[in-house]
Amino acid sequence: QTQEFDNEEEARKAEKELRKENRRVTVTQENGRWRVTWD
């Protein structure tokens, strides 16, 4: 699953929550947008 964010702060917040659920999370930056991908 993927979700896009406008800034790193929001993306990192989402990453932190997903990691609490023991998910594999990848955060990438593309064209000024932050993308959080998880399984």
Score class of each variant (00 low, 15 high):
residue 5 F to A: 01
residue 1 Q to G: 15
residue 3 Q to A: 13
residue 15 E to H: 03
residue 6 D to G: 06
residue 39 D to N: 09
residue 19 R to L: 14
residue 6 D to T: 06
residue 30 E to T: 10
residue 28 T to W: 13
residue 29 Q to D: 04
residue 17 E to F: 10
residue 36 V to N: 00
residue 13 K to G: 06
residue 3 Q to K: 13
residue 14 A to F: 15
residue 15 E to C: 10
residue 32 G to S: 04
residue 38 W to L: 05
residue 18 L to P: 00
residue 27 V to L: 08
residue 14 A to I: 12
residue 15 E to F: 10
residue 20 K to N: 10
residue 35 R to S: 05
residue 4 E to L: 15
residue 37 T to N: 08
residue 38 W to T: 07
residue 15 E to G: 04
residue 4 E to P: 02
residue 34 W to M: 00
residue 12 R to N: 03
residue 1 Q to K: 11
residue 26 T to G: 03
residue 6 D to F: 06
residue 24 R to H: 14
residue 18 L to S: 03
residue 2 T to L: 08
residue 33 R to F: 09
residue 31 N to T: 03
residue 24 R to A: 11
residue 14 A to T: 06
residue 34 W to A: 00
residue 12 R to I: 05
residue 6 D to A: 08
residue 8 E to A: 03
residue 18 L to K: 06
residue 31 N to W: 04
residue 38 W to K: 02
residue 9 E to C: 07
residue 31 N to E: 08
residue 21 E to W: 13
residue 8 E to S: 02
residue 27 V to E: 00
residue 5 F to R: 00
residue 17 E to N: 10
residue 6 D to L: 08
residue 20 K to L: 14
residue 4 E to K: 03
residue 21 E to V: 12
residue 29 Q to E: 14
residue 39 D to H: 10
residue 31 N to F: 09
residue 27 V to P: 01
residue 20 K to V: 07
residue 25 V to E: 00
residue 12 R to P: 00
residue 33 R to W: 07
residue 15 E to K: 02
residue 38 W to H: 05
residue 27 V to N: 00
residue 39 D to K: 05
residue 30 E to Q: 10
residue 13 K to Y: 11
residue 34 W to E: 00
residue 4 E to G: 03
residue 33 R to D: 01
residue 12 R to M: 08
residue 9 E to V: 09
residue 15 E to D: 02
residue 24 R to P: 07
residue 16 K to N: 12
residue 17 E to Q: 13
residue 14 A to G: 02
residue 7 N to I: 05
residue 4 E to M: 15
residue 39 D to T: 11
residue 10 E to Y: 04
residue 11 A to Y: 02
residue 7 N to G: 04
residue 32 G to A: 04
residue 31 N to Y: 06
residue 17 E to H: 09
residue 22 N to Y: 15
residue 25 V to F: 03
residue 37 T to V: 10
residue 38 W to Y: 09
residue 14 A to V: 14
residue 8 E to I: 04
residue 17 E to A: 13
residue 27 V to C: 07
